[in-house]
């Protein structure tokens, strides 16, 4: 693939043409918040709406996970408009996330914490009150558990299950605010085709899927 030069925050960087800007930035040590991105997707879902950047010459911010690298493409990872959208998206996600970092198995390894740190956002419910939906956790597997009240619907576990492990135990179901990661007919994971390969757990950027303490892992 031919190489092009893109300019991120003033830095000139060589990248394969067409490669999505998010990956170019991350690889070069420039952080852009992201949750749903998986590089192998033919078409990025672009669902978390956190990876906005400002492209020179364009008024509205665009998602970097869908932005192909092209020669001379110049972007800023921060701008007042980018910051405003990222803050709102982040706070919206938090409003549906049970925040109990101290007792969360992902404490210190959580992507939400990282975003908060990088972008100086508060890990507290702010403008948008907590929705308190709290669906019941599923700890039926021997080695791991799933607490949907922490799930940010990034879909990475489903990618791992369906495309990497090729099992088909979990998927998205329902629509709108009720969209969720479930098994067939919402049965417990232990009753699903899941073979506990653990790939989905490793893919989860937050503490929704986590290995049980007793199990040997990570």
């Amino acid at each position: 693939m031919s190489k092009v030069t893109v300019i991120i925050d003033g830095r000139e960087i060589k990248a394969p043409a067409g490669r999505k800007l998010l990956w170019v930035a991350l690889e070069n040590g420039i952080y852009i918040p992201n949750l749903c991105a998986v590089e192998e997707y033919a078409r990025p879902p672009a669902s978390c709406r956190l990876c906005f950047v400002q492209v020179e010459g364009r008024e509205k911010p665009v998602t970097s996970c869908t932005l192909p690298a092209a020669d001379g493409l110049a972007v800023q990872t921060r701008s007042p408009r980018v910051d405003r959208l990222v803050r709102t998206a982040f706070e919206l996600l938090l409003s549906d996330h049970r925040l109990q970092c101290a007792s969360c198995p992902a404490n210190r390894a959580c992507e939400l914490q990282k975003i908060a740190r990088e972008r100086k956002l508060k890990l507290r419910y702010g403008r948008f009150p907590y929705l308190q939906r709290e669906p019941a956790p599923d700890d039926s597997p021997q080695t791991f558990a799933f607490d949907p009240s922490r799930c940010v619907l990034c879909g990475r576990c489903i990618w791992a299950d369906q495309e990497v492990a090729k099992i088909g135990a979990i998927g998205f179901s329902r629509r709108g605010i009720n969209r969720s990661v479930t098994t067939f007919k919402d049965v417990a994971l232990a009753e699903s085709p899941c073979n506990e390969c653990g790939l989905c757990v490793k893919a989860c950027p937050v503490g929704a899927l986590y290995f049980k303490k007793t199990a040997e892992s990570k």
């Binding site: 088909g168 135990a169 979990i170 998927g171 067939f184």
Partner: peptide, 9 residues
Amino acid sequence: GVSAVEVYG
């Protein structure tokens, strides 16, 4: 030839 959870979706 798809998983049941996909049809459930």
